[in-house]
Design a binder for these strands. Structure first.
Lengths: 112, 112
DNA sequence: CGTGCATATGCATATACGTGCATACGACGG
DNA sequence: CCGTCGTATGCACGTATATGCATATGCACG
């Protein structure tokens, strides 16, 4: 895995933004209301998140609608799998197989 | 989840240390050889990792043997589960159930 | 076109943090 | 005891980075 993914998420404000976006796509101003910092800051964080692959933008009139992208989360999930043996022992194989199936399926389905 | 976990991992040197420790317990000097910074820095990082719950120490003569602890990884894994729906859709429930079973097995969790 | 709303960017600042150096602390062997 | 090896800590420094303010850019509508 790559530390950049972690560094991107490690900032409290960006983390919050990501969590809000988990609830669905949002315009910049909607995010500003939830994060307690100035709008310029939010825009800059969104830039960073975009460059790191966490979010994508869709213009809607004068607004810009941001939403999450799966890749970095997937990467993180794949990485942490290597550490599952720390708390599993017996279920390890089972989990790995599940993981394999998920990756194999690769069904794309957008959200509820 | 809590950002501290991410912040702790977000430093390249600490990340490296964690990855090395995935291979098993190590004394401080063993780690120093692998991370390209001064020994004092490594000790400092180990302190941070300890306080964040990532590692534990075991004295061995004059040496100190560090090893990984599962909790923060578990926490991270639990958090990322919320985002699995970004790339899965149907297997989500299955994964959750597996997760539940894992948690049920090891019900032991409190610390300093 | 000009006005207003939504978002991005340049500049300046403060603060946090990783790092090295020197040194202190602790354990063990002679 | 005394010295040495292994590790932790105080101090000083440089740098990265998050933030606010002011302003630029972009888009819609009258």
């Amino acid at each position: 895995m790559h530390v950049d993914v972690l560094q991107t998420l490690a900032d409290p404000t960006r983390f919050r933004i990501v969590e809000v976006l988990r609830g669905g796509e949002r315009a910049v101003n909607d995010l500003v209301e939830q994060v307690a910092i100035h709008q310029s800051g939010v825009s800059r964080h969104l830039r960073i998140l975009t460059e790191a692959g966490f979010v994508q933008v869709r213009p809607d009139g004068p607004k810009r609608i941001y939403s999450l992208r799966p890749e970095p989360f997937r990467e993180l999930d794949a990485w942490i799998t290597q550490y599952r043996r720390l708390w599993e022992a017996r279920l390890d194989r089972f989990a790995e197989e599940l993981d394999r199936r998920q990756h194999a399926r690769k069904r794309k389905e957008t959200e509820p």
